[in-house]
Simulated assay, not measured.
Amino acid sequence: MEMALRVAETLKSFRETRLSALRPPSEFFDVHRISRPADVNQAVSRISYNTRYFSGNYLVIFLALSVYALITSPWLLGALAFLIGGFILINRFGADPMQFGDATITQKSLYTGLFVIGIPLLWFASPFMVIFWLIGASAFLILGHACALEPGVESEYAGLGESV
């Protein structure tokens, strides 16, 4: 119960801080502002401004790609479910030592068994391939969008308050 309250509190603060920065789709997908940057300096300037301005939208893209990567990698999803589920079950039901015949099974031996099975299963699921795909796909989409989209009129006035 206590953990559920912490998760709910974390999601609430996440929604208030990160998702409040979401820009409307009409602004994010404005095809009239898409153009090729004239040079590298302009591309870097656009990327710098747009990654700050659209940070909430880019976070949603990253999260959507993360969910897609997990769904399309059933071995990784199964390995993570096994490890996380085993950890939760051991914490809930394996706190006290159990006696089976002459053998005593402790929480430490349950964790050892979980990791002896779970780590090779996780390694077989190739999590690094998924992580590198996620980094590459996110970088391509986010940097491509940030580089191609011209900053709006509000960007001209962004530094005005700082210089006064």
Rank of each mutant, 00 (worst) to 15 (best):
E162I: 03
S66C: 07
Y157V: 07
K108A: 14
R33G: 12
F54N: 02
G161P: 00
L65K: 05
L5D: 13
A64Y: 05
L89H: 14
R46C: 01
A8M: 10
A137N: 09
A43H: 11
A43G: 09
K12R: 14
N41P: 01
S20F: 11
P97G: 08
W123N: 03
V164E: 11
M1C: 06
E154H: 05
D102V: 04
S55V: 09
A43L: 12
A64Q: 05
V40G: 00
A79P: 01
L65Y: 06
R92L: 13
I119C: 10
F128R: 11
S45E: 11
I90R: 05
L65D: 00
A8F: 12
F28N: 02
T17Q: 13
F93C: 08
V44S: 12
E162W: 10
S163W: 10
G118F: 04
V116M: 13
Q107P: 00
G113I: 08
Y53R: 08
L80M: 06
G136L: 10
F93Q: 10
I90V: 07
D96K: 15
A148K: 04
I84T: 08
T17C: 10
N50G: 05
V67H: 06
V67K: 05
V116H: 06
L11Q: 04
E2K: 14
A81P: 00
M129W: 02
P151Y: 01
G144L: 09
R6W: 08
A148M: 15
I34M: 12
I71E: 11
N50Y: 00
E154V: 06
F62C: 04
V116K: 13
A4N: 10
F128W: 14
P24H: 08
A125T: 12
T72F: 02
G101C: 08
S26Y: 10
